[in-house]
Amino acid sequence: MPSSGRLFLLIGSVAALWGCAGEIPKEALQLTSESLAARQMQTRRFDSSDEQALLAAGGAVLQDLGFILKTSEPGLGILVADKDRSAVEAKQVVPAIVFSIVLSALVGQGVEIPWDDRQKISSTLVTHPSGAGDSATFVRVTFRRIVWTNRNAVSKMELLDEPRFYEEFFQRLSKSVFLEAQQLP
């Protein structure tokens, strides 16, 4: 390596150690219009003031879905659960293997394109009395996942934001408490 190249490398590594890992993004703690849309998608209103029964029923639905309960605080209406599952998708693995073989042949040495291997799906369930004197309770559920590749690197950290997940969850919950889950206005 020419000495100027080495110099750049040195300066670069010193700068990397000196600088911070990046500042917190400005919008990280800002309410947006998406926050409201997410709240609507994740929340339903039940005509019941029995918060504990709703929380327990929510826990049972999470168990039905294979979640493992991590922590709970009934005094605040909170359940936290997660589950570890496979994240392997054939439509991702097959091209990855094919490209790895082609690239390896081109480069002349082993190249491996990683694919998604496993995931942790986390969930929080929160119940909240409506407080408007109408004996209703709000239930909000949130799902999120982290995906790791077969090389153990994080490939995805994302909110599971398809409405169908929430619709299905609340359908199951309303069946188990014999109450209709009402969409927020």
Binding site: Q30, A38, R39, V80, S123
Partner: peptide, 17 residues
């Protein structure tokens, strides 16, 4: 709890006492 949820947080732990 509600504010953190609105801000996109997932609640991990909570204790009323």
């Amino acid at each position: 709890v509600a504010t953190l949820q609105d801000l996109g947080f997932l609640i991990e732990q909570a204790s009323l006492p």
